[in-house]
Each structure stands twice: as structure tokens, then as C-alpha cells.
Design a binder for these strands. Structure first.
Lengths: 289, 289
DNA sequence: CCATTATGAAAGCCCAACTAACATATGGCT
DNA sequence: AGCCATATGTTAGTTGGGCTTTCATAATGG
């Protein structure tokens, strides 16, 4: 497209509004600027095009012949642009919400609660993709993610959903009848870790768990660690958010709580305008946190 | 028109070019910006609209479903705008040149020369409006004016065409056989002035012409003053530019030249882009000055 | 594997687009 | 004719949108 011989688009928009309304002041009101801005744009376009487009007509403005010739093309053209944008935005807003969370979060925190959302909002489709992959929301087409970390990722907005304080947990069956107030108390029990989760291991060592004295097992996923812990296979260190249902129900015993400054499960969204339905979903998430 | 729910027009133009070409780099080349500018605009529009419009596809970019939905509306809409502007500019460029000059300039300087222009450029119509009115070029639809003064008018471009030094002139018939080197020499002759032209009278008095001793006559227009001077009715003070043809031809005798710093006949045009034909006419004017 | 071409992102610059303020023009009413 | 309200015209000053620059990363073809 040959844009070099076209005045600035904001200036043409000003001219269109002025031409259609017959008034610099009404055009200004419509575009939320001052009449001075419209007047300057009109002059700029006239100088660029080498012809007068509007002249003073009593208290308002009238189109010249050239102005009358130009106006339909601008009104039609800009109308097409606005219509196209509006339609796409409407369709985008109607699409199912697409969210991604880690598998353990999906399994232990989100899915147990989704029934409540679907009951309350049968009209809103939410597509949940459990994945460990580091996802680019825009590239991969997600509206939202729940991610564990510090929440300071660049290029996205992050809102804390649940602080991810760790807790040391075990099945009641393996703790019955024995001391279990400190890590040392439990150093003779098996300790279960997720393979990739070095941080929890390092914390345990720094708090007194002697790696030479205790038996440790590595499992592939946090879900496996949790399942094994429930089964009494050992002691593990979990995010409190993931296990608070088990603790509340008595399936697990919370032995030591470990505050973790700044870590947590975060609701991650793209910057910019958020659809009402996404806002609703996020508000629901916060309400069940 | 509801502009509030529309991303910025320059950003939409970038998206249109990227979508149509399938490449941020090709869109950048087309719009004469860097690929980074296009990429930023794309992101801005996507954030605003809440959906992805293009994704990476090998070395280029592919439209998403939403992007494919949006593109025709942008291409069609912007195409209308560009077409409308182009058509009006073409029509404006084809219109006759409309110029305004003072009547005396038209009669004594311009019209005697216009034959040369019309011979050289039979395809260009020039409409000459002789008027003393102070004209607003834009409001009154003129492409150009020739105006006498200092050339420092606000809001227009002014280029000196001819310096307006005054000369004191008379017909040879009334100067024959007598001293005529100074104003005093000629104080017994009738002096002819244009009614509104106080400046020349004031100059003559300041240079020694005694109003009590000489006979002065006021005529309505500079053309009348010139015609009377040619007829030997008296001495007058004229702009050199207006009478140099008469002096060259011997119809008038230039007695005293009066340099006037900064005054002259100026070509006055509107700021901004000038049509090729107007440029051609102005160049011709300067060539016959 | 490397060179080339493309996109991605962040920091910084600058002027287009605007506001504020004041001047001038127009029309209605008294 | 004068006053007042409403509109446009213009200029000076401000600022953030639009861009460039720079460097990083990704993809492709030879």
C-alpha cells in the first residue's frame, strides 16, 4: 500500500469526524480531544493534500467540494476498520478460556475445585492444559496460566493466588507412636523428593537432615511424591497449597511449616485488556484460594 | 464512530502490512520503519484485542484464525482511505491554478507577460483574480498570490519576486528642455498620487517636495496614476517593477530611484506540499522577473 | 555446523499529537 | 447597538506514542 502520499491516519480520522459532524467542536467531543487538535489536524491534511477541505460556515464548518469528495471514502474505510476490530474482539471474547497449570496443581488443587466453577457458570467453557512446559501465553494461545515461583516474570502480569510455603508431611500411620517434631526426629524415615525439585532437598539439608543418615527416594513427579506420601511410603516436603485438602481431611499430618518469602502459585496473564469472562474466572480462583 | 475500542491506527496499519506480507521485515520495508517497530505494534494490538493475531512460522509469520479474520477488514478499509485521498489529490492537482494579484500588478506586470506562459504551457489553465482585498489563500481557494510588502506575513510562505524600489517617473514630453534632477527641480509640475498610497507622498515630502508649492492630484488606482503619467499629466512615484517596461520602451523617463529595503512584490503560497504545476508557474514567474 | 535471515525485547530518543490559553468570529437576544 | 454564548483560529509548551538502536534468540539452507 502506498502510504507515502497519505497524510497521518490520526489526522485523517480528525478530518472524517469534523466532516461528518460539520463541527470542529463536535468532532473534538467525539474523539475526546480539544477543538484545537481537530483544527490543527484539518490544516495539516489540507496543507498535505494541497486543497481546502472545510471552510467556516456561520458557527460551524462546511465541506468544500474536495472535502465532500473525500469524506465518504474516509467514513467507509474507517468504518470497515472499526467493524473488523469489533468483530474479532467479540469472537475472541466468546472463545473458551484456555488455561495451563502444572499437572500437580491441576490434580491436587484445581480439578477438585472446578466442579464448583462449572456449577456456578455452566455457560463458560474452560479448557485446562496440564503441562510442565514453560509456556509463552501469546504464542501458545493461552489466556492464563498458574505458575509456581516468585511471580516476577517479564512480559506478563502475575497475581499471587496462594503462597507456596512448604510443609513437611507424612501419613498418620508412619508417625503414630513416635517423636516427629524435628527433621532429626524423622531422619530414620524414608524421605521422598521430586527429582527436579532440588530446592526442597537443599532446604532439608540446611535444616539438619543428614543425607548420610537418611534414606531418600526420588520420584519423577510431584503427583507421584504425593501419592507415595499418602500411602505411607515416607516423609515429603510439599507446597502447602497442594496438600491442605489432605491435611484438613486427616489423610496427611503437617509436621513442620516452612515459610517461603515471595514464592507462590501465581495467576499469570497477558498484559492488556482482559476479557470479562477471564476476569470472572480469576476472581473465582481467588475466592476459592 | 466508536474509536475507544479500537487500537491505534498506526498500529493497525503495521498489523495489516505484516498480515498481508507474511513478514515483519517486509512490512517494515513497506512502511519505512524497522522490524522492531512492526513487532511492537503487533504486540500492542494483540494485547489490546486480547487475542493472538500472528505467530512465528519458520522465518516468517503466519496469521492465526483471529488474524485471518481481521486482515480483510483492515486491507479493505485502509485501501478505501488511501484511494479516497489519492483521488482527491489528483483532482486538486488538475484544477486550474487560481492566483490573485493587485490590479496594477496584473495590468502592468503580469498580463503583458502571461502570453509567454500560455504559449509555453497551453495545457495549464491559470485563473487570475485582480483584487486589492487582503485574501486568505486557504479560505478563498487561491493557490497563490502576488502581494506587495515586506513578505513577513504569518501563516504563509513568501518568496521575493521583484524588489519594489520606487522610481520618480514622468513622460519625456513634460521633461524636455528643463532641469529635472531633484524633487525641487520639478516642484512646479503637477504630482500624481494614488489616493490610498500615503507612503509615497510622505516620502516625497521628506525628500524636499514642498506640498504648499506644488500641485498634487489624487487618483483612485495605481493604474489610473500610471495612465495619467504616460499621458504627460504630471510626475508620479511608482514601483520600479511596474514601470520598467515603460522606461525600457522610452514611454517614461526614470528621474530618481529610491531604494526601499525589504519591500517588494512577493509570491505568497500556502505552506505544505506544492503541486508540480504551481511550482512550474512560480519558476516561470521568477524567470521573467 | 555455520552463515544468513528472521523475529523478540529492552532502553532511550524525539517529535507528533495534544492541551492550555487567548484571540477572533458568528448569531441570538434585548 | 451591545452583550453573551458558542464556535473556530492560533501559538507556545508538554509528553508519551512511535520509533531506532542494540543485542539476543530462532529458523533455515548450504
Amino acid at each position: 500500500m502506498e502510504w507515502r502520499s497519505v497524510p497521518s491516519l490520526p489526522a485523517l480520522r480528525a478530518v472524517e469526524a469534523a466532516g461528518r459532524t460539520g463541527s470542529l467542536s463536535r468532532a473534538a467531543a467525539e474523539l475526546n480531544v480539544t477543538h484545537a487538535a481537530i483544527a490543527q489536524h484539518l490544516r495539516t491534511v489540507e496543507d498535505f493534500m494541497g486543497c481546502s477541505l472545510m471552510i467556516r460556515d456561520g458557527r460551524g464548518m462546511a465541506l468544500t467540494a474536495h472535502g465532500a469528495q473525500l469524506l465518504p471514502a474516509l467514513t467507509e474505510g474507517f468504518g470497515q476498520v472499526i467493524g473488523g476490530v469489533r468483530d474479532v474482539m467479540a469472537d475472541a471474547a466468546d472463545a473458551p478460556l484456555s488455561i495451563t497449570v502444572t499437572p500437580s496443581f491441576a490434580e491436587n488443587w484445581l480439578m477438585p475445585r472446578m466442579g464448583g466453577f462449572w456449577s456456578a457458570h455452566p455457560d463458560i467453557t474452560v479448557s485446562v492444559t496440564p503441562t510442565m512446559a514453560i509456556s509463552d501465553l501469546r504464542r501458545d494461545g493461552f489466556d492464563m496460566a498458574v505458575r509456581y515461583g516468585r511471580g516476577d516474570w517479564p512480559g506478563v502480569d502475575a497475581t499471587l493466588l496462594a503462597p507456596a510455603d512448604y510443609v513437611v508431611v507424612a501419613a498418620p500411620s508412619i508417625l503414630q507412636g513416635r517423636d516427629h517434631k524435628t527433621l532429626e526426629d524423622m531422619s530414620d524415615l524414608p524421605w521422598l523428593f521430586e527429582s527436579a525439585h532440588r530446592e526442597t532437598r537443599m532446604w532439608a539439608m540446611s535444616e539438619g537432615l543428614d543425607p548420610a543418615c537418611c534414606q531418600t527416594k526420588e520420584l519423577a513427579t510431584m503427583s507421584m511424591v504425593l501419592a507415595a506420601t499418602r500411602a505411607g511410603a515416607g516423609v515429603s516436603i510439599m507446597s502447602k497449597a497442594l496438600v491442605m485438602d489432605d491435611v484438613t481431611a486427616g489423610r496427611l499430618v503437617s509436621v513442620i511449616e516452612v515459610p517461603q518469602s515471595g514464592l507462590g502459585y501465581f495467576i499469570v496473564t497477558r498484559p492488556g485488556v482482559m476479557s470479562p469472562r477471564l476476569k470472572l474466572f480469576i476472581n473465582w480462583l481467588k475466592s476459592v484460594a
